[in-house]
Write a protein that binds this DNA or RNA. Structure first.
Lengths: 146, 146
DNA sequence: CTAAGATTGTTGATGACTCAAGTATACCAG
DNA sequence: CTGGTATACTTGAGTCATCAACAATCTTAG
């Protein structure tokens, strides 16, 4: 129970700080950042909204709105899928990739400072492996994109 | 970096599930619950809004709004402080205490199921002590109520 | 081909928080 | 007592996410 409370508190404090930094310096939320990161790593820099939603742990409509913002900013574009007219891809633009690199630097620095620097490598591994055991999201919808 | 990502994901999944359960079954958010719990444990079942805010990691205005809701539901009351007219106490009502007990059961069960059951006691301790090292909230404003 | 059902995505209403600004009170120096 | 500053709290406006309802498309079965 203590551990759970710690998780709650530490997460809040951490994301609050990092989010504030990201928003302040680059106008991106943590989720914006994560989405752009996923897109950058995806083949052809594009993903379906559904897959994005599952990865970032947002609902479908959350993703729609998030991508609305990124589109307006010019960081992503829509693209139709040729084989399935229901799906709309989100594609990271060059501008978006640029932005991601820019924001990435300070974000990573922030994570290091607020998070990683407080632990040894070994502890980080322990933490990662323990946390990995937690539920990924209700069901096992983890057959993602690779 | 992996560890950090794990923290993000696991927290989201976890609080989402628990919050949904709490809201669904009892109409309370996790923060509502935490606030009521703090009040229940406080001397005379009352606390200043400021202290509440610090404990739950919300802003002052967040607390105002949260308490608005709890007041409307009849779970807390306001009380003036006799020695300092600026402060308004939040006091847990009997009804609130009752509600807390009720909600507590299923919430604790949920935490056990989704969180604690996945670890050994030792791991929980490890986790708690590691997480405790993370920033508590920007500064060390931890001189609370006791 | 048509009807039923599942999947993808969007939209409207709502809720929970934040920040910035404002009010009221307290405390401290002169 | 007066003025300045800090503290406690509230309010207005905006953001980010949710859910529920909906439209469009795909799939499967008769």
């Amino acid at each position: 129970m203590e551990a759970f409370a710690s998780l709650l508190r530490s997460h809040s404090a951490l994301t609050r700080a990092l989010n504030a930094q990201l928003v302040g310096d680059h106008g991106l939320t943590i989720n914006d950042y994560e989405v752009m990161l996923l897109l950058a790593r995806a083949p052809e820099r594009r993903l379906r909204r559904v897959d994005l939603a599952a990865s970032v742990l947002l609902t479908a409509s959350g993703i729609t709105r998030l991508l609305d913002g990124l589109e307006r900013a010019g960081y992503v574009n829509k693209a139709r899928c040729e084989t399935d007219a229901r799906v709309t891809y989100a594609v990271l633009t060059d501008e978006g990739l640029e932005k991601l690199r820019e924001a990435g630097e300070s974000h990573v620095a922030g994570v290091r400072e607020l998070f990683e620097s407080r632990f040894t490598d070994e502890e980080l591994q322990t933490l990662a492996s323990l946390l990995a055991r937690l539920p990924a999201e209700g069901d096992g919808a983890a057959c993602s994109v690779d």
